[in-house]
Amino acid sequence: MQIFVKTLTGKTITLEVEPSDTIENVKAKIQDKEGIPPDQQRSIFAGKQLEDGRTLSDYNIQKESTLHLVLR
């Protein structure tokens, strides 16, 4: 499925993911596309910070959902 990741600069990245993917996985995909190390990424969805060990389905993130990426 496709999800979108919006950065603070307003750029939107499209990722191909599975509901079973962990947040860690997703951060690795963002690193592949953007070169941002996962330890600098904070992902926010529906106002909640997403934890690395959880999966997209844990957070009820579905296709075409938009995550927000904040850098630390």
Rank of each mutant, 00 (worst) to 15 (best):
Leu69Ala: 01
Ile3Met: 01
Ile23Cys: 02
Asp39Thr: 10
Thr12Pro: 03
Arg42Asp: 13
Asp32Gln: 14
Gln31Ala: 14
Gln49Leu: 15
Thr55Trp: 02
Thr66Glu: 06
Lys48Ala: 09
Met1Ala: 02
Glu16Asp: 12
Thr55Arg: 09
Leu15Ser: 02
Thr55Gln: 06
Leu8Arg: 11
Glu24Gln: 12
Asn25Gly: 08
Glu16His: 10
Glu16Thr: 13
Pro38Asp: 08
Thr55Asn: 02
His68Lys: 07
Pro38Val: 15
Glu16Gln: 11
Ala46Arg: 14
Thr7Ala: 04
Thr14Ala: 09
Asn60Leu: 06
Lys33Gln: 12
Lys29Tyr: 08
Leu8His: 14
Ser20Phe: 09
Thr7Gln: 04
Gln41Asn: 08
Glu24Tyr: 14
Ser57Asp: 07
Thr66Ala: 03
Thr14Asp: 03
Gln62Ile: 11
Lys27Asn: 06
Asp21Ser: 06
Asp32Asn: 10
Val17Thr: 01
Lys6Pro: 01
Asp39Cys: 12
Asp32Phe: 11
Thr12Met: 12
Asp52Glu: 08
Arg54Met: 12
Arg54Ser: 06
Thr66Ile: 13
Leu8Val: 11
Gln49His: 13
Lys11Gly: 06
Lys29Cys: 04
Gly35Tyr: 04
Leu8Ser: 14
Leu71Gln: 10
Ser57Ile: 07
Ser57Trp: 08
Gln40Tyr: 09
Pro19Leu: 09
Leu71Asn: 07
Glu24Leu: 14
Leu69Val: 08
Thr9Gly: 13
Lys6Leu: 10
Lys11Tyr: 11
Thr7Tyr: 12
Gly35Ala: 05
Thr22Glu: 01
Asn60Pro: 01
Ile61Glu: 02
Ile44Ser: 06
Leu15Arg: 00
Lys29His: 04
Ile3Lys: 00
Gly35Gln: 06
Ala28Ser: 11
Gln62Tyr: 08
Asp58Phe: 14
Ser65Ile: 04
Glu34Ser: 13
Leu15Gly: 00
Ala46Asn: 15
Glu64Gln: 11
Lys48Glu: 12
Leu56Ile: 09
Gln49Glu: 15
Phe45Trp: 14
Gln2Ile: 15
Leu8Pro: 14
Leu71Trp: 11
Ser20Trp: 14
Ile3Pro: 01
Met1Gln: 00
Thr9His: 12
Thr66Cys: 05
Val70Ser: 06
Glu51His: 07
Asn25Thr: 14
Leu71Glu: 08
Lys63Met: 09
Lys29Arg: 10
Lys63Leu: 05
Glu16Val: 12
Thr7Cys: 09
Thr7Leu: 15
Gln62Trp: 06
Thr12Trp: 08
Leu56Asn: 00
Pro38Thr: 14
Met1Leu: 06
Ile30Gln: 00
Gly10Lys: 03
Lys11Val: 09
Leu71Pro: 10
Glu51Gln: 10
Lys29Ser: 03
Lys33Ile: 14
Ala28Ile: 13
